[in-house]
C-alpha cells in the first residue's frame, strides 16, 4: 500500500559514521503527508542518528534528503527549524538553568513591539510567558505550576513535556519525536499520543521513535523498522502483529520487501 502522493520528506541511502562506528548504514526513509510514521529498532540501531541527519544536528556522510521534492542540506539545527521541522531530541535539548518559557522560545525569542524591541532589542517576557503557559496547558501537564521555574527543577517527565510542547508550538511542516514518552507516566504518555494525533489531524506529519510497541500500534500509520543502521522493512499495524514486528526488529524473522511476507532468516 504505497501511497501515490509525493512524500513530504524523503531520505535516500543515508550513511553516518562516527570514527569506525557506522551508526547509519545506507538507510532510507519516506514520510508522507498527514501520516504518523513510527521508527522502531533495537538500542543502537541508528534511529536517533538517522533523525539527527534529518534535522541538521548531524550532517550525513552520504545520501540525499529531499523536502517537498527539493534536495536540501541542513548544516545546523537552525536550518531545519527555519524550514518548519521541529525535533524533540532524545536528550531533550533543554537548558537547565533557564526557565520554562525561555526554553520554549530559545533561539526564536519574541521582541517587544515598537522601538524598545527594534532598537533596544528588548524581549517581550510577559508575552512569551503567556504563550508558554497556553502551550503547556494544551499538553495537560498539571503539575507544572510556575512557568518561570528553572528547567532543572522539573522532573524528567515534565522536562520531556516542555520539549514536546516546544515542538508542537512551532512545527510548521513536520515534527520529529525521539522517544517522547520514555520518561512519562501513563496519563502524560496518553496526552502526548493524543497530541501526536492532533498534529496529524492538523495535517502535520510526524516521525515518532518509540520502543513502546502498544503505543506504536495505537498511533502509527506505518512502521519503519531499523536494524543495524538500515531500514529493513516498512509495515503497517494492520498488516503485521506486534510480535512479528519485534521479531523482524531483532532479526529473528526476515521480511520480503516485495510481498511483505515473513520468513525465517536465511
Amino acid at each position: 500500500m504505497t501511497p501515490t502522493v509525493a512524500p513530504v520528506l524523503e531520505a535516500k541511502n543515508l550513511v553516518k559514521t562516527y570514527g569506525r562506528v557506522v551508526a547509519v548504514d545506507g538507510a532510507s526513509l519516506q514520510l508522507y503527508p498527514g501520516e504518523v510514521l513510527a521508527v522502531v529498532g533495537d538500542n543502537g540501531a541508528g534511529k536517533s542518528t538517522l533523525i539527527k541527519c534529518l534535522s541538521g544536528a548531524e550532517t550525513p556522510d552520504e545520501g540525499t534528503i529531499e523536502l517537498d521534492g527539493e534536495e536540501i542540506s541542513f548544516r545546523r539545527p537552525q536550518d531545519s527549524r527555519d524550514a518548519g521541522i521541529e525535533t524533540v531530541y532524545q536528550n531533550l535539548a533543554i537548558s537547565p538553568a533557564l526557565d520554562i518559557a525561555s526554553n520554549l522560545f530559545l533561539g526564536r525569542e519574541i521582541r517587544k513591539k515598537g522601538p524598545l524591541g527594534s532598537i533596544f532589542r528588548m524581549l517581550d517576557g510577559s508575552g512569551m510567558k503567556k504563550i508558554a503557559k497556553e502551550q503547556i496547558a494544551l499538553l495537560g501537564i498539571g503539575t507544572i505550576q510556575n512557568i518561570g521555574q528553572a528547567a532543572e527543577t522539573l522532573s524528567g517527565g515534565q522536562r520531556q513535556a516542555v520539549s514536546v510542547a516546544r515542538a508542537a508550538a512551532f512545527g510548521q511542516k513536520l515534527i520529529i519525536l525521539d522517544e517522547p514518552t520514555a520518561a512519562l507516566g501513563v496519563r502524560e504518555s496518553k496526552q502526548v499520543l493524543k497530541l501526536v494525533e492532533n498534529l496529524r489531524d492538523r495535517g502535520l506529519p510526524v516521525i515518532l521513535i518509540s520502543h513502546n510497541m502498544p503505543q506504536v500500534f495505537e498511533v502509527a500509520d506505518r512502521i519503519h523498522i531499523q536494524r543495524l543502521g538500515k531500514r529493513i522493512a516498512v509495515v503497517t499495524p494492520k498488516s503485521h502483529t506486534m510480535n512479528e514486528v519485534v521479531a523482524v526488529m531483532t532479526g529473528a524473522l526476515e521480511i520480503d520487501e516485495e510481498d511483505q511476507s515473513l520468513g525465517p532468516v536465511r
Partner: peptide
Amino acid sequence: YAVGDDIEAARLAGIQ
C-alpha cells in the same frame, strides 16, 4: 546563558 549552561542543548535548540 544557554551556551554556558549546556552547549549541546543550546546547539540543538537552534542557537548558533
